[in-house]
Every structure is written in C-alpha cells, then in structure tokens.
C-alpha cells in the first residue's frame, strides 16, 4: 500500500504527467493507463476512477480535446470498438511547458531544502 506521502506527490503531478504523455501523441484512456503503467516505474499504476477525472478536468479546461475515431476493420472482418482519442490543444502545450518549468524549479528547491544526498 502506498504511503500517504507518495499518494500526495502523485496527486500533485498527475495532471502534468498526463498532459505530457498526451503531448507526445494522440491517445485514448486505456492506452494512457497502459503507458503510465509501463513507464511509471510503479508510481503510476492508476485505476480508471483516478485517470478519467484528470482527463475530464483537462478537457473542461480546454487543455486537451477529445474525438471519437474508429480504426479500420482488421482481418477477420469485425469492426473494432470506437475509441475516444485525446489530443493536446495549443493552450495545453503552453500549460505543459509552464508545468515543466515550475516542476524543475520546485525540484531544485526541494533538493536544496532537504540537502541533496544528505539524510
């Protein structure tokens, strides 16, 4: 079970992390969950109830936009289910840049305060 500290840190950076992943390429909810699980090193094994509210907030704030797309038929004839793809908007790209800057400064400040390398 995650410590409260890890949970709070995760809560703070989740929007930034999701926005950064979407800025790399258009993606859909399930793919995002998989990507976060794969690249998150154990920190971002999310459930739907945590990811979707983030996506809804980003969309309502105009930082991402969604659209339904259906992939072409595969061999076998069955049409795959339509997917709701999320794409970053211009405002979202600017916000992602801002978040990265703030994060870098924040990280440096915390390292200084806590004495990098010291216990």
């Amino acid at each position: 079970m995650e410590s409260r500290f890890t949970q709070q840190l995760k809560k703070g950076v989740l929007e930034m992390v999701v926005l950064c992943i979407i800025s790399e390429k258009d993606t859909y909810g399930y793919e995002l969950l998989q990507e976060l699980g794969k690249r998150g090193e154990g920190f971002f094994d999310l459930k739907e109830g945590t990811l979707y509210p983030i996506l809804y907030r980003l969309e309502d704030d105009g930082l991402i936009q969604s659209s339904w797309k259906q992939d072409p038929e595969r061999n076998g004839g069955r049409r795959p289910a339509p997917k709701k793809y999320y794409r970053i908007t211009d405002a979202g790209s600017r916000a992602a840049e801002d978040y990265r800057d703030i994060w870098k400064k924040f990280e440096q400040c915390v390292d200084r305060l806590c004495g990098e390398g010291e216990v």
């Binding site: 859909y28 399930y30 739907e48 979707y52 795959p80 289910a81 997917k83 709701k84």
Partner: peptide, 20 residues
C-alpha cells in the same frame, strides 16, 4: 452529465480491453 460521461468511457474501455 458526469455519470453519462463516465459510463460511456468505462463501457468503451471494457470493449477495448476485450479487443486486446
């Protein structure tokens, strides 16, 4: 409105996982 949005996405995700 939020319930409809959530159910739509959860339903879609279940089908996508089945395809996987």
């Amino acid at each position: 409105k939020l319930k409809v949005r959530i159910n739509e996405d959860i339903g879609t995700e279940i089908h996508l996982r089945m395809e996987a």
